[in-house]
Design a binder for these strands. Structure first.
Length: 220
DNA sequence: AGGACGATTAACT
DNA sequence: GTTAATCGTCCTC
C-alpha cells in the first residue's frame, strides 16, 4: 500500500475525479489501481484507458438512461463500475464526473507492479508478464474484479480496490485514438495510452455484425 | 416472453 | 486472417 510520510495510506481524493471522462482519462494513465480482493494484493499501473461521456455519447452504457446495471455511473465519482460482457468477461471502469452525470473511464490495460505471482495464478493463459493485464477483461481478471466489486469506493483506504498515485506525463508520452470494439461514435478519439508500453493492447476497429433479424429495416 | 447483441478473449487456419 | 464460447441486459413484440 502506498503511504505518505506519516504512514497513512494514500488514495486519490474524490474531487480530483469529478471531471469529464475525456478530460480525466489521459490523466489516469500511470495511476495505480490496487486490489486486495481475496486477501491477495495485486496492483497495476494503468497504461491504456477509454473515456465514456455522460452527455450525448451513444457508445456509453448510460446513453439510454439509468438502469439496474449502470446505476453506479449516475452516482458520485470515485466508485467502480463493473459490467459483464460476452457471457464470460468482467470489465472495470472508474466512475468520474460530477454526481449525476454518468461519466466513466474504462480501464483497458495496465502493467502489474505488485502481486505478480497472484496475477499469474488468475491469468493462467498469459504467456508473458505484459499479457497479464493487457485488455480490459484481462486487467479485471488479474485484479480479481467481478460483480462483487461493483460500486466499491476507490477513494477509501478501507476498500478492496483502491486508486492511488495520479501521475503526470508529457504530451509526447500519451497517444490518443478511436475507442476499441464500438460501432457508434467511433470518430471520437477517446482511447488514450502510454506510448512504448508493452502492456498496451493492439488496436482493433469495431465491426458490426451482419443483421440477422427478419424484420424489415428499410433497405432491400 | 423472446431474441439480438455485446466497451472480449483464446484458439484456431 | 477467422470463429466459438457464453449469458446478462435491453429492446421489441
Amino acid at each position: 500500500m502506498d503511504e505518505d510520510g506519516r504512514g497513512q495510506p494514500v488514495t486519490v481524493a474524490r474531487h480530483r475525479l469529478a471531471r469529464p471522462a475525456p478530460w480525466l482519462a489521459p490523466r489516469l494513465l500511470g495511476a495505480v489501481l490496487v486490489s486486495l480482493v481475496d486477501g491477495v494484493e495485486v496492483a497495476v499501473r494503468l497504461t491504456e484507458v477509454e473515456a465514456y461521456s455522460g452527455i450525448g455519447d451513444a457508445a456509453s452504457h448510460a446513453f439510454r438512461g439509468r438502469t439496474a446495471r449502470n446505476t453506479v455511473m449516475f452516482g458520485p465519482p470515485g466508485h467502480l463500475y463493473v459490467y459483464f460482457t460476452y457471457g464470460m468477461h468482467w470489465c472495470a471502469n472508474v466512475v468520474c464526473g460530477p454526481d449525476g452525470r454518468a461519466e466513466a473511464v474504462l480501464l483497458r490495460a495496465g502493467e502489474v507492479v505488485r502481486g505478480l505471482d497472484a496475477a499469474r495464478v488468475r491469468r493462467p493463459t498469459a504467456r508473458t508478464t505484459a499479457e497479464l493485464a493487457r485488455g480490459p477483461a484481462r486487467l479485471a481478471m488479474a485484479l480479481g474484479i467481478t460483480s462483487r466489486q461493483y460500486g466499491v469506493d476507490l477513494c477509501s483506504d478501507q476498500s478492496p480496490v483502491q486508486l492511488e498515485r495520479l501521475a503526470r506525463y508529457r504530451a509526447a508520452d500519451v497517444a490518443a485514438g478511436p475507442r476499441v470494439g464500438i460501432t457508434v461514435a467511433a470518430d471520437r478519439l477517446w482511447r488514450f495510452w502510454l506510448v512504448a508500453e508493452p502492456s498496451v493492447s493492439s488496436f482493433r476497429p469495431g465491426s458490426r455484425r451482419v443483421r440477422t433479424s427478419t424484420r424489415h429495416t428499410g433497405t432491400s
